[in-house]
Simulated scan of single mutants.
Amino acid sequence: MSPKMQGLSWQSFKKNSMVPPLFIIIGLGALGATSYVLRLALRSPDVTWNSRANPEPWNEYKNKEYKVCWYL
């Protein structure tokens, strides 16, 4: 049986106090990056998932007025 990398077994995970925060921070970073990419893919007006029904989705926003609220 090949030896596991230190910090990946339950005994070494509990023994080393620096490993749990490292896993938490890396997990939160991966979750944040994934959610941001999904938000860009699903909410951006430049992205079209059905090019036959709406080949130029950016034209829907041509005559809309946008107001930016800086106090939120």
Rank of each mutant, 00 (worst) to 15 (best):
M1V: 11
M1W: 08
M1R: 08
M1L: 14
S2F: 03
S2G: 07
P3I: 03
P3N: 10
K4I: 06
M5G: 02
M5F: 04
M5Q: 00
Q6W: 10
G7L: 02
L8R: 12
S9W: 04
Q11A: 14
Q11W: 07
S12E: 15
K15R: 09
K15D: 09
N16S: 02
N16L: 05
N16F: 06
S17A: 13
S17Y: 07
M18Y: 13
V19I: 15
V19N: 00
P21L: 03
P21K: 03
P21D: 04
L22K: 14
L22Q: 09
F23H: 08
F23L: 09
I25D: 07
I26G: 12
G27N: 12
G27Q: 10
G29P: 00
G29E: 01
G29L: 07
A30Y: 06
A30V: 10
A33K: 13
T34H: 09
T34G: 14
S35P: 01
Y36D: 09
Y36E: 08
V37F: 08
L38V: 07
L38W: 01
R39E: 13
R39I: 07
L40Y: 08
A41F: 03
L42C: 05
L42V: 02
R43M: 04
P45F: 01
P45W: 05
D46P: 00
T48Y: 03
W49R: 15
W49Y: 13
W49N: 11
N50C: 10
N50Y: 09
S51P: 03
S51A: 13
S51G: 08
R52Q: 14
R52G: 04
R52E: 15
A53P: 02
A53Y: 06
N54D: 14
P55G: 02
P55Q: 09
E56K: 09
P57L: 01
W58M: 10
E60L: 05
K62Q: 09
K62Y: 07
N63E: 14
N63L: 12
K64I: 11
K64G: 03
K64M: 13
E65A: 15
Y66V: 15
K67Q: 13
K67D: 10
V68F: 08
C69K: 06
C69V: 06
C69Q: 09
L72M: 07
L72Q: 09
